[in-house]
Design a protein around this nucleic acid. Sequence first.
DNA 1: ATTCACTACTAAATCGCTTTTCTAGCGATT
DNA 2: AATCGCTAGAAAAGCGATTTAGTAGTGAAT
Lengths: 359, 359
Amino acid sequence: MTTKKRAKGALQTVRMGPKPVSLKQLAERLSLSPATVSLVINRSPVADSIPQETKDRILAAARKYKYRPNFFARSLRAQRSFTIGVIVPEVSEGYSASVMSGVEDHLLQEGYFYFVASHRHRADLIDEYPRLFLERSVDGLIAVDTPWTLSLSVPVVTVSGHNQVKGVTNIVLDHVRAAEVALKHLFQLGHRQIAFIKGQEFSSDTQVRWATIEKAARQLNLPISPALVSQLKGDSSSPQLGYEATRKLLASRKPFTALFAFNDISAMGAIRALREAKLRVPEDVSVVGFDDIQSAAYQNPPLTTVRQPLREMGRTAAETLLRRILRPGGESLGGETMVEPKLVIRQTTCQAANGLSSK
Amino acid sequence: MTTKKRAKGALQTVRMGPKPVSLKQLAERLSLSPATVSLVINRSPVADSIPQETKDRILAAARKYKYRPNFFARSLRAQRSFTIGVIVPEVSEGYSASVMSGVEDHLLQEGYFYFVASHRHRADLIDEYPRLFLERSVDGLIAVDTPWTLSLSVPVVTVSGHNQVKGVTNIVLDHVRAAEVALKHLFQLGHRQIAFIKGQEFSSDTQVRWATIEKAARQLNLPISPALVSQLKGDSSSPQLGYEATRKLLASRKPFTALFAFNDISAMGAIRALREAKLRVPEDVSVVGFDDIQSAAYQNPPLTTVRQPLREMGRTAAETLLRRILRPGGESLGGETMVEPKLVIRQTTCQAANGLSSK
DNA sequence: ATTCACTACTAAATCGCTTTTCTAGCGATT
DNA sequence: AATCGCTAGAAAAGCGATTTAGTAGTGAAT
């Protein structure tokens, strides 16, 4: 990296006023007290008795001098910050980013801002960031794909949290349905030997997802061979992990005609590993991913996957949180909001080669 | 989406103290004045005359009662928020997310938090968000891939901003080199008919990138045919745009043996379009992307691309910003910090089919 | 002539912290 | 005895808003 400074003429200088007007100054210019001005500007019912003419004068002056209440002064007084904290494993993961996008949709629209902090699976940070958020007086917290056990003094909403904690609302996918729909799809295509890649331990969906897969398999009377169950290892979010997990599967030498990956990223790595083993996707092995990240549709071949409405989940999380911030109490025991998955069939799945489907 | 509330036993309740201690209360318990306590806690030099014993008592009490200075009170007084604002086109884009990740690396480590806002290319939001940030008294701003012309009352650092604005530092890629390295690679492989996909108008790199490509082509004595120049249209960040741009290229019926896409995302769409036209990648058409997003290495075939060190750029932006916040003045005319690209050769490029390389 | 009820505002107390400016007490100097 | 210089800490003035509890002034009712 090199550093150099260039000096050219400035392109455009729309210097934004360096000295904002305070309430007191505004009041002075109006020959009124700060109290009156504040009352009027905040449309307090107490200001009902003030004649419209005066109100107009105040409002006009506020506009003229571009009066903006000082945020800290206001927050200090109101003990509210109109800010919420969002904690994610990693900003640059497609999963977190999609959810954040939904969170933002709703939040900014409602006049809230948000802090982001990513813990990168470090337990100490998972502990510390909420504390720091609280120190900054956030009005609430959203935890995305992060194990959560704390009951805080402000409302908390998780996305994909599965613990029942007081004061915490979880936004979760209907995993039962997700597992059913994916397995049924493979089953109907004739697949009987299905391999699986489980998520890392720290991923908050890992356990539920696996439990629901086992259940769905039982219902289909489909045995799961332990040799065909692999797991993502390591805390990066690279396709590499899926690649490695698949290599392990392949090394077991137990044949399989389909693979259900923990997510799209790992499915991408899996496909690479399969190819290297001279297996064609989907002709020899069908692959199903999870999440439906943006690039899933543009894989080659396009990836069949279980879509999670991530952005919607983020939006719902934000809505739920704001609702709870505005109407405190009632956060008795934590609740759950469920969203539905959708199987998106593209081209990494096809009829099983062994013809079992016709039996 | 269905909603249902479940009630189970709470898992674990580590309720965090609902009533933080104020400085005044702490001082009271110590039978000292708030002033003294504040001075000691902040290790002010004025507290030098206070005996160590008293200091220890104060520090011990602070720890015991978990005293945390109220953030707003402190910021109100100090006129500093230890918060910076980050404005991006879209959180869920790989580009922005990678940069943000780098920004965060440095920021949190230095005790700063950051707000995120995505403008989604809407001019009104590009105008409004900085204003809102300022209203919240951010100490500085980072604008990622966003056209920037404003000179603000706080330091601003852009990532991929190319305007010279007073008080604004730009972190940019060495585009000259990027264009050279990519074109030279294709040239050496014998490609003479190269197609291009330009970025959208609103993308802040579009112009520079194209200018440098033209220059590099001239230096190689390589003509650029207007019929082989396409452009991304629309403000989504889906591969679809690259797909469409490539269709247009194909429709011109002018043959080409290589394609240089504006970014990896559009390269993905381009490859899809090429395949549909029965063209093999790379045998019939070589493709070069830009950025080297995470999934680039896991495309099939793995994508040859020009890597931008996005995370590093984010980190550098944060460092530069904090430096300027701490040492005000000197932001005379805006400066520029350049980072180097790197050509990552994977498998979407190969020798041109027409054998020109051997001439 | 009082009292009452309004109207149209204002004073002043907070919110919690920082920081500059005192001051009380005490031993040591002139 | 008066002054000086320390030490150890306290008082008080903000920072910029919000909000409760007033208070003049006016006209009407008793």
